[in-house]
Design a protein around this nucleic acid. Structure first.
Lengths: 218, 218
DNA sequence: AAAATTCTTGACCAATTGGTCAACTGGTGT
DNA sequence: ACACCAGTTGACCAATTGGTCAAGAATTTT
């Protein structure tokens, strides 16, 4: 055990410093991978953005692939945490509304991570195929069953649960992946706070009405 | 003028042969750019896939950027042609249903082109920013006005036209960009004909109901 | 204070990249 | 038969890439 840190870190401490360095590198890497794609990203660019010599990156992450893999796994963890809110409510209205809010917030706060994820899947998921086949598949099938139960209970219209989930993913993710296009169509300005609220409200309005749920009491 | 070609090309002819070669290169390029991204794609890979020596590519397309630009412009033309069907009907139900069908068909028939387009926009639209600012902006504003008129005429619910359009783009494009994920969740098999029909039907069902349109008579 | 461990970094390397070029081929018009 | 020109191609080049390494600086442990 280490002596200091009765109170949280008056001085850095080795473990914390290492984690802070890694975090700094990962944030730079996320941005560069999002902007340039895996192939277009260079270790030198990531190093510059992190303010470190390139050789130092290789001390913390042995290869470009390893660094990329860590970035992808991190965003997948965020994705999974948002998925939890789907189960936090007991009815379709609250569950889906909360899920849309959570995913829209990810698109807003982690646009780079979302783009890396999209890029990874678009290129055939070379590094996270396992996650797709196991974690994501299980989550999806579980939620599809929940939706089918809601339908059977008459709490929402009869729709194909998988395609409903695809629509939720597609629509919310679009605000991150295509934010440049949205910004251009918004007169070159990023969406304001109010516009983000309207985006969330619009998505919820159309999808909830689309599956036969009265959202007026949300 | 060239002597042959009273009737359309009994023998290739120089112009046709050139176009055929370019088409072959463009198809190979589209695939490689879609699979590897601009940065990850190499002229050698494209040449191999087209079955031509690399130096020959540079005869038809001087640089990698020029080749990429042509690929992106081609898919944008397809995109624009699909956009036309939005105006082919006079009511929101038929127009939006036809538009969804057209865009879903693009996702199905041109997955590579769709991915290239998504990748281009995701990376800040370095080569087609002009198209976004002019052609796309005009189309979008025009269609938004049409939707607002439909709303004013009481033919659909009051929704934000821009976010409705984003949802249409996002949802339909998702079936191309994330087809690998969808395939994985479909047991590793591509969607069958019947599953594609169900996908189209599901998208139309939810979105049309979502904007207050009874689609039972379509 | 000295030994041991962790971290930092400039210099370097082999491999790959986009692109060039000069020599060659083959068809077309005269 | 000849000249002409679009098309083809292997060999080549400068620049960039991911990654290595050994020498040194910091920090922790003894």
């Amino acid at each position: 055990m280490n002596l200091p840190a009765k109170h949280p870190s008056p001085r850095p401490g080795q473990k914390e410093r290492r984690l802070a360095r890694e975090k700094r590198i990962l944030e730079a890497a996320e941005k560069v991978f999002a902007e340039a794609g895996f192939g277009g990203a260079t270790m030198q660019l990531i190093a510059d953005m992190a303010g470190l010599p390139k050789a130092n990156l290789h001390y913390y992450f042995p290869t470009k692939e390893a660094l990329y893999r860590q970035v992808v796994e991190n965003i997948f963890q965020i994705w999974l945490r948002a998925a939890d809110v789907f189960d936090s409510a007991d009815g379709p209205a609250e569950a889906i509304a909360a899920y849309i809010d959570a995913k829209m917030e990810i698109s807003r706060r982690h646009p780079a991570g979302s783009k890396v994820w999209a890029s990874e899947v678009m290129h055939g998921a070379p590094v996270i195929q396992d996650y797709l086949e196991h974690t994501l598949t299980e989550w999806t099938e579980g939620r599809a069953k929940v939706i089918e139960r809601w339908i059977a209970e008459g709490r929402m219209d009869r729709v194909n649960p998988h395609h409903l989930l695809y629509m939720l993913w597609a629509t919310t993710q679009h605000y991150a992946d295509f934010n440049h296009q949205i910004e251009t169509l918004n007169g070159g300005k990023p969406l304001s706070d109010a516009q983000w609220e309207e985006a969330k409200a619009s998505v919820k309005q159309i999808i909830l009405a689309g599956i036969g749920i009265d959202a007026s009491n949300l």
